[in-house]
Simulated scan of single mutants.
Amino acid sequence: MTRRCADWAALDLSLAPAGGPVAFCGDLGPESLLAAYRAGLYPFPAADPMLRDLNEALFEEQVADGRVALVGREDIDPYAVSWWSPDPRPVLPVAGMRLGRTLAKQVRNRAPWSTSLNRAFGEVVEACREGREPRWLTKELVDSLALLHESGWALSAEVWEDDALVGGVFGVRAGAVLSLDSMFHRRSNAAKVAVADLAARFGQVGGVLLDTQWDSPQTRGIGAGPLPRTRYLDLLHTSPDLPPPAAHPLPARRLAG
């Protein structure tokens, strides 16, 4: 039996795959997207029909025997979007986010950088799309993220050199967790500074974790480490919604200690 996509909370992730998709659902609308983040999942849309067909070919047997869920209305192609909830989850404690010694020196000594929140959400998302294949940031997903941004759930942090945008990160907040979708840089280490800025601002309103979603050398390089999925889900399910972080511009050098 299928469920409406917004009912992600009814999905039992206790026995879901640890390192592959846990569900397929084609509904990328903003309500479905936010409900999925609140339930501990994030989307990976197929960038083209070939990748959509690959999803079905690789996972239809696991869907048939119930190891991977098929969620949503039958009139929306589920295999167009896979949904993930890794175990363990790579996370970065907000309180533990620090710039390394070399980067802190760079931030103190180079031409002054400033940071902001939500000043250029659309520009950050588009910069994260540039030159990346497969392009999982599809137009449908970007449109839904823009609507979540308008309602205060999707956030971006920006790094500026004078009036030039040189780095940024964006993600979706759910309770005490902020799930980072993507980041970019046009100056060395500007993305790390954006993450540090977002961690500082989110921590000031009670945020606990930044979720980096994918385990990689890049995410480990900013301090992410593994957290069992059960503990990650417990935090999501027990933490209240927080007020949005402060958005006023701030000097980046404050992050250098």
Results as ranks from 00 to 15, higher is better:
residue 1 M to Y: 06
residue 5 C to I: 02
residue 5 C to Y: 02
residue 6 A to M: 01
residue 7 D to Y: 00
residue 8 W to S: 08
residue 12 D to C: 09
residue 13 L to M: 10
residue 13 L to Y: 07
residue 17 P to M: 10
residue 20 G to M: 03
residue 22 V to C: 10
residue 23 A to H: 08
residue 25 C to A: 14
residue 25 C to P: 10
residue 26 G to V: 11
residue 26 G to R: 12
residue 26 G to H: 04
residue 29 G to A: 02
residue 30 P to Q: 08
residue 30 P to H: 05
residue 32 S to Y: 13
residue 39 A to S: 15
residue 41 L to W: 05
residue 46 A to D: 04
residue 47 A to Q: 02
residue 47 A to V: 12
residue 48 D to R: 14
residue 54 L to S: 14
residue 55 N to K: 12
residue 55 N to G: 10
residue 58 L to S: 15
residue 59 F to R: 07
residue 61 E to T: 15
residue 63 V to G: 11
residue 65 D to P: 09
residue 65 D to W: 06
residue 66 G to P: 05
residue 66 G to I: 08
residue 68 V to N: 15
residue 68 V to W: 01
residue 68 V to I: 13
residue 72 G to S: 03
residue 72 G to C: 05
residue 73 R to A: 11
residue 74 E to V: 15
residue 75 D to P: 15
residue 76 I to D: 12
residue 76 I to C: 08
residue 77 D to A: 09
residue 81 V to E: 03
residue 81 V to K: 05
residue 83 W to R: 06
residue 86 P to E: 00
residue 88 P to L: 02
residue 89 R to L: 06
residue 89 R to F: 09
residue 91 V to K: 03
residue 91 V to G: 03
residue 91 V to S: 03
residue 96 G to N: 04
residue 100 G to M: 00
residue 103 L to M: 06
residue 106 Q to V: 13
residue 108 R to H: 07
residue 112 P to H: 02
residue 113 W to E: 10
residue 114 S to C: 12
residue 117 L to T: 10
residue 117 L to E: 05
residue 118 N to L: 03
residue 118 N to S: 11
residue 119 R to D: 13
residue 123 E to Y: 02
residue 123 E to F: 04
residue 124 V to D: 02
residue 125 V to A: 06
residue 127 A to M: 12
residue 127 A to W: 05
residue 128 C to H: 11
residue 135 R to Q: 13
residue 136 W to I: 06
residue 137 L to D: 07
residue 137 L to R: 04
residue 138 T to G: 02
residue 142 V to L: 02
residue 144 S to G: 01
residue 144 S to K: 02
residue 145 L to I: 10
residue 145 L to C: 10
residue 147 L to G: 09
residue 147 L to N: 03
residue 151 S to D: 13
residue 155 L to P: 06
residue 156 S to N: 08
residue 157 A to G: 13
residue 158 E to M: 00
residue 159 V to R: 03
residue 162 D to W: 13
residue 163 D to H: 09
residue 164 A to L: 04
residue 164 A to T: 13
residue 165 L to P: 10
residue 167 G to W: 00
residue 170 F to V: 04
residue 170 F to S: 06
residue 172 V to L: 12
residue 173 R to N: 02
residue 173 R to I: 01
residue 174 A to N: 04
residue 177 V to C: 14
residue 179 S to G: 08
residue 181 D to W: 05
residue 182 S to G: 14
residue 183 M to S: 11
residue 185 H to K: 07
residue 189 N to G: 13
residue 191 A to T: 04
residue 192 K to A: 03
residue 194 A to Q: 04
residue 195 V to T: 08
residue 205 V to T: 11
residue 207 G to A: 04
residue 208 V to C: 08
residue 210 L to D: 05
residue 210 L to G: 12
residue 211 D to G: 02
residue 215 D to E: 09
residue 217 P to K: 09
residue 218 Q to R: 05
residue 221 G to E: 00
residue 221 G to Y: 00
residue 223 G to K: 01
residue 224 A to M: 01
residue 224 A to W: 01
residue 230 T to K: 15
residue 234 D to E: 14
residue 237 H to I: 06
residue 238 T to I: 08
residue 240 P to F: 01
residue 242 L to A: 07
residue 242 L to K: 12
residue 244 P to S: 14
residue 246 A to I: 04
residue 248 H to I: 07
residue 249 P to Y: 05
residue 249 P to D: 12
residue 252 A to L: 15
residue 257 G to Y: 00
